[in-house]
Every structure is written in C-alpha cells, then in structure tokens.
Design a protein around this nucleic acid. Structure first.
Lengths: 119, 119
DNA sequence: CGCTTATTCAACCGATCGGTTGATTAGAGA
DNA sequence: TCTCTAATCAACCGATCGGTTGAATAAGCG
C-alpha cells in the first residue's frame, strides 16, 4: 500500500536540514538558491535534499524562467498524523483497560500483594 | 534542542519493520523472541531494530528472568505531532492569506488580467 | 550569438544502515 | 553443575546517505 510512501515521508523528515527546509517553505515558496543561502553546504546538496522531499510528496516544484520555486504540500502531513494517532490511541486504550484489570486484581487479592516482595 | 531526538524518532519510524513492531507493541508488551517470530529476519536483526526504537525513546524495556519485554512509550508521538501540526498550520494560514490577497487583486485588476497572456 | 544565472546530472567518497553469522552473557531448571 | 533458553555483542558485507567537485542543461540578457 502506501507503506512505501509513509517510509519516504518519515525518512525525509529524519534529516534536520530537510525539516528546516520544510519550516522555511511553510512561510512561503522559495527557489533552490534562496533555500540554499542560509546553509554552508553546496547548492547541489540542497537540491538533493529537495529531491528527497519531492519524492516523499512533501514538496512540489513549479517553473519561472530558469528558476524552479518549491512549494510545500501540507496535505501529506495528514498521512503521518493518521498513522501516529492510530497507534497512540491504541496504546492509550490498552493502558485504560490494563488499569481497570489491575484495579480489579487489587480489590480481589489485597493480602497476596507482598508475596513477590518477601524473597 | 531536541532536534536530535526528533531526528531519531522520524528515522526510527522510516523503516516498515520498525513501524510494524510499534503496531504490535501498541496491542501489548512483547519479548524480542515474540516480536521476531512473524518475520523472516534473524532475532539479532529485530534486536537491532528495537535498539533503534529505544534510542528514539519510542520503546522501553523491563526485565523478567532472561526475558526483556518491550513496552511502547506512546508519549513520544506527541513530539512528532507537535512538529507536524506546527508547520501544517503555518502552511494553511499562509494559504488563507494568499487566497485573500489574490481575491483582492482580482477585485482590483479585473481588466489587467490578460496582460501577461497577451504576449 | 555569447555570457550569466539557476539548477540538475554524474561520479566519487566516507559514514551509516539493515542484514548476516558466530561468540558471549545471563538466568532457570534438571 | 550442566544445560537450555533469551537476548546481546562483535565483526563483517553490500546498499544507501549526505556530502563533495565538475560538467551539462536551460532560460534570460547584452
């Protein structure tokens, strides 16, 4: 399924420079040169980072003469949020049930609680 | 800051096997052997995956004889969600403003719209 | 047309990644 | 104690990653 897509999105955001680029693109569209300016690395390196973000679907490019301004595709974030929320909720639900079970055991076996601690 | 932490979390979840492990741990705690069973890869490989998840703070381990059951630490998800939401909102807000500006220009320059297209 | 600007392509390099196999540690249990 | 089970450590391997430099492509400009 979109297993692969999700992997690319997470991998793309695993790099601090790329997260930084996303942050800057959230403010407004920008060209490769503009995006590269604040960094010490070469323009080619930034261009590569942008390719990774594009392959993940996080960024798109348009054309303006020889410039190719990049644009943040914010919808992809939903894919991540959906994945994260799913398992967070599941884990929280489990906690809730576990707490209930432990409370029930506690009610039932008040006197046997020290059994393990005695050794 | 927790730049580094965030990088590790995203990197950890960039691997489908590790996301799968997280999914299983959301259902309930499990030992390395139990987690490794459904996969074709060696136990050592799964052990390595778990180390990555632990280093990212997504998973913790306890002790039960020679077994070391793993537990999902769901709170770390909040770190990601916070990051994602921040830039999604920012991008969405920008859209809103851009739409407003375009609408205003549209009102103002109805007749000049074909200027660019004429050449 | 020839120059400059913006960007990408290509080859290379060291580091990290996901996997392997083999040896080791740690605890239970006969 | 000797043995079995659970898991980790260690060394290695090919692939990918983030970076470099150098050449190529593409579009505006004098």
């Amino acid at each position: 399924m979109s297993e692969d897509r999700l992997s690319r999105v997470f991998a793309a955001l695993a790099d601090p420079t790329r997260r930084d680029i996303v942050a800057r693109l959230a403010v407004g569209d920008a060209t490769v040169g503009q995006l590269a300016a604040p960094y010490e690395v070469s323009i080619q390196a930034v261009s590569k980072h942008l390719k990774v973000l594009e392959d993940a679907g996080l960024v798109s490019r348009s054309q303006d003469a020889q410039r190719r301004p990049r644009h943040l595709e914010a919808e992809v974030f939903d894919l991540m949020t959906a994945w994260i929320e799913r398992y967070r909720r599941q884990a929280e639900e489990r906690y809730r049930r576990l707490d209930a079970v432990l409370a029930a055991m506690d009610d039932e076996n008040q006197t046997t609680i020290n059994k393990g601690a005695a050794s």
